[in-house]
Design a protein around this nucleic acid. Structure first.
Lengths: 202, 202
DNA sequence: TAGATTGTTAATCGATTAACAATC
DNA sequence: TAGATTGTTAATCGATTAACAATC
């Protein structure tokens, strides 16, 4: 196995995979992929050379093999469970979001301060916070999604990590502190919109 | 005015502003900002030197003046209207999201294929698609948010641009084509989660 | 063989960091 | 003045692109 795929490359792999899902021909060239996604040919080739074994000169890559390699690199081939904390509007929207399963990801339960035992969203249970730790341990959950208000986010994050979570996806507009070895991705929506706004201005 | 603030710098400005909102002392040093946000001191100084006039050696920056400069650079000082297309779960979650107004952004209406005239979300009207163009022109809306399913996204995007939209925030898992001069920001949630997942693996 | 396409090595570009001079 | 802190110039780093050799 190759040891290090750069973060930048990693970020493009899902796009390659998504594009390839709609390719029916047996072979595909880096040029075709690049054109479809608006990327440089060489960049695509370099990325693909990192995840996939070999493409053949003249013919390109075997579509099916390339798909398989991308799935393996992305960990899509096994379904990974995730939990979500904060079943408010944004949280329930994410629970309802169909796209995750495509990447082998599945939100199997949500947790909320205000959860009565019978609550369900999109067919998924919503439990009280007290059950978070035990649930994550039983189901060996390693991914946690935070959709609580800013003032509760760090506390929730700490509880997730105490429950064995190794990757945190944070939707609260707060910089979270996580120990080394825990992956953190911030999705500050207000910041993204502000960013778009300033792109427009500048 | 300085001509070009890099995209990377621009992306950090909202974080600076957010942090400064909670600073009460009259002056603030680049070192303090850097520590709070986990960035390099010099990086902060370089960013701030681009947006703000001058900090004073020994004392640092005048907090209030720095806030004002950041707001100006981000265009926060005037409230900017935005429209949202696709009032499903994710769309309504965004309409309900409180953080946007903080950055001077306001979703003033939503549009949806299935809109009866009386529908409202978070006190904001939901109109049928037919009224999109006229509404944007009357209210001089320049920012559009797309939260429709993948298969409708490009069509909605085209309609937004035909309505005078200059910046598109796309939540559908599709690469949109926009003409030059239109800012596009993609927020592919499935891709972000996949990215987190693969960070964890690698 | 000739042509197409891959994979790699070197060059470029942009962003970050280090070093340091300027100044309150 | 001495010390702290800014702002800038040069060095580093990482990612992308260009050039080109390898090969089916």
């Amino acid at each position: 196995m190759q040891s290090a795929i750069s973060r930048a490359t990693l970020g493009r792999l899902p796009a390659y995979l998504q594009y390839l899902e709609n390719v029916t021909s047996e072979h595909i060239s880096s040029a075709a992929v690049a054109r479809a996604l608006g990327l440089g040919e060489v960049l695509v080739r370099k990325d693909l050379s990192l995840v996939c074994g070999k493409g053949k000169p003249k013919t390109g890559y075997v579509t099916e093999a390339l798909r398989a390699s991308l799935k393996a690199a992305l960990g899509v081939d096994r379904v990974t469970p995730a939990v979500l904390v904060g079943a408010g509007k944004l949280g329930t929207a994410l629970m309802d979001y169909k796209g995750f399963s495509y990447y082998g990801m599945d939100i199997i339960a949500a947790f909320d301060k205000n959860a009565d035992s019978s609550r369900e969203v999109s067919g998924k249970p919503v439990y009280p916070m007290e059950q978070l730790r035990r649930f994550c341990q039983i189901h060996d959950v390693k991914i946690g999604i935070i959709t609580v208000p800013a003032d509760a986010a760090q506390s929730v994050c700490d509880q997730l990590i105490a429950s064995g979570i190794e990757a945190v996806w944070n939707f609260s507009p707060v910089r979270l502190n996580v120990p080394d070895g825990v992956a953190l991705q911030n999705e500050n929506l207000a910041l993204s919109l502000a960013h778009l706004h300033s792109m427009q201005i500048n």
